[in-house]
Amino acid sequence: DHFNLDLPTAAIQAETVADEECPEEGISHLPQPDCTRYIVCIYGQRNHMVCPGSLYYNPVTSNCEFQENVPECVGGTRPPVINGTTSTFSDISTTALPTDVPTSTTTVPPNTITQCGHTIQQDSGFIEYKLYQSYEAGELCAFIIRLDKYTGCDFTLETHGISDTKLDTITIFQVLDEQATFPSVKFETIGSTVNLPGSTFVVVFKTETNLGTGFRLRFESSEKLIEKTPGVPLVFNNHTENPLRFPLHPNAAAKAEWDPIVITSGSKLITETKSSLRLQVYDYFVSPGCRSWFSIHSFDGTNTKFEGRVCGLNGGKTVLAFNTRGLFIVVFYKNDNTVEKYLGSLEWLKTSTI
């Protein structure tokens, strides 16, 4: 769907809103007095997030967790916090917005991500998720791997305790610029190794039952050096209260930017009748010939769908809406000849109707 509308007030404010708590560089997670809420600061842009259900935000782990794991919150109120945890553009190895936290005390290898919503920018490492813990039914847990210097990657499923009968529990998508279809592979057996070209990958763990335990997946770059367009890989598992503005880097005029974004509804498949995850895209692109754009894909847990490219071709200021019961993979690209400071926004929420 698309509508030729003026942007809502919240979207317009998102272009210029600033806060002294938000650093102008890097990514920060800021707790709020209401324990169910927190702010993700992306280069000075404030993004208000809400934890699902009755979970509380834990500033120690940057996760939404069960209330008993956040003892400083009394009656849902947090005492004052001096500052959040900050990372820089050149040192983003993990950016976590998950909904639960593994409790295993086993030692994990270096360069390992362990929680839904983690991202990593390394040329080798591991995803180790609930390896010795039971997973839940209906999980849709996403990770992003972005190789640091190389292209081409070998993936090996080292071990798992998965008991779901279908062979699509672990799916890896190669995230591309121009193609309408993302190449993907699915893992079936321990020790199996597959190769995907490219340098950015989304790994999705999907469950139907709660009868098994998790996995450890190793990745290692396998081919040649490549120069990459700067960008920020992000996974959002929680509802945002204000649109996410692009480009993410406000001081990158005449510089290219390439951001892979994954959006889920609490790292879960949506099973309720007439409910869906809705993504609204605010199209303010002015670049001729689609030189800058959003590319939007959805994954319902079984099938992927190319929803379309948003780049100003509809004319005027347009709002487009997309729905899925699974997750969205969005790529934002800004051409290095683009000088506009605002090209569009993303906003998402779980809705009660499709």
Score class of each variant (00 low, 15 high):
residue 1 D to F: 14
residue 9 T to C: 04
residue 10 A to V: 08
residue 13 Q to F: 14
residue 13 Q to E: 12
residue 16 T to E: 13
residue 17 V to Q: 11
residue 18 A to W: 15
residue 19 D to I: 12
residue 21 E to A: 14
residue 21 E to P: 13
residue 30 L to F: 06
residue 30 L to E: 04
residue 35 C to Q: 04
residue 36 T to R: 08
residue 39 I to C: 01
residue 40 V to M: 02
residue 40 V to C: 09
residue 42 I to R: 01
residue 43 Y to E: 12
residue 48 H to C: 03
residue 51 C to L: 02
residue 52 P to R: 02
residue 53 G to F: 09
residue 54 S to A: 14
residue 54 S to E: 12
residue 55 L to E: 06
residue 55 L to D: 08
residue 57 Y to E: 01
residue 59 P to M: 05
residue 60 V to A: 11
residue 65 E to V: 12
residue 67 Q to P: 00
residue 70 V to H: 09
residue 71 P to H: 00
residue 73 C to N: 02
residue 75 G to N: 03
residue 75 G to M: 06
residue 76 G to F: 10
residue 80 P to Y: 14
residue 83 N to W: 15
residue 84 G to V: 09
residue 87 S to G: 10
residue 88 T to K: 05
residue 90 S to Y: 14
residue 91 D to Q: 11
residue 97 L to V: 11
residue 107 T to D: 14
residue 111 N to L: 02
residue 112 T to A: 01
residue 112 T to Y: 08
residue 115 Q to H: 14
residue 116 C to E: 07
residue 121 Q to K: 13
residue 123 D to L: 09
residue 127 I to G: 05
residue 128 E to T: 08
residue 128 E to R: 12
residue 138 G to H: 06
residue 138 G to P: 00
residue 139 E to C: 02
residue 141 C to I: 03
residue 143 F to G: 01
residue 146 R to S: 10
residue 147 L to W: 12
residue 149 K to A: 13
residue 153 C to G: 07
residue 159 T to G: 06
residue 163 S to M: 11
residue 168 D to R: 03
residue 169 T to Q: 14
residue 174 Q to Y: 04
residue 177 D to H: 13
residue 184 S to I: 01
residue 185 V to L: 00
residue 189 T to Y: 14
residue 191 G to S: 07
residue 196 L to K: 05
residue 202 V to E: 03
residue 206 K to F: 11
residue 206 K to E: 07
residue 208 E to G: 04
residue 217 L to W: 09
residue 220 E to L: 07
residue 227 E to L: 08
residue 228 K to T: 06
residue 232 V to F: 15
residue 238 N to M: 07
residue 245 R to L: 09
residue 250 P to K: 00
residue 251 N to V: 12
residue 252 A to Q: 10
residue 257 E to C: 11
residue 258 W to E: 11
residue 262 V to L: 04
residue 262 V to P: 04
residue 263 I to M: 06
residue 264 T to I: 05
residue 267 S to A: 08
residue 268 K to P: 10
residue 270 I to R: 02
residue 276 S to T: 13
residue 276 S to L: 09
residue 279 L to F: 07
residue 281 V to Y: 06
residue 283 D to L: 01
residue 289 G to H: 06
residue 290 C to F: 11
residue 290 C to V: 04
residue 291 R to H: 13
residue 291 R to V: 10
residue 294 F to G: 01
residue 297 H to L: 06
residue 297 H to S: 04
residue 298 S to L: 00
residue 301 G to P: 06
residue 302 T to L: 15
residue 305 K to R: 07
residue 306 F to R: 01
residue 308 G to I: 04
residue 310 V to L: 02
residue 310 V to N: 05
residue 311 C to K: 06
residue 317 K to L: 06
residue 318 T to I: 08
residue 320 L to G: 11
residue 321 A to S: 10
residue 321 A to W: 10
residue 322 F to S: 03
residue 324 T to C: 03
residue 325 R to P: 10
residue 327 L to T: 08
residue 331 V to T: 15
residue 334 K to Q: 00
residue 336 D to S: 03
residue 338 T to F: 08
residue 339 V to S: 15
residue 340 E to V: 07
residue 340 E to T: 11
residue 347 E to T: 07
residue 348 W to A: 00
residue 349 L to M: 12
residue 350 K to N: 11
residue 351 T to D: 02
residue 353 T to N: 15
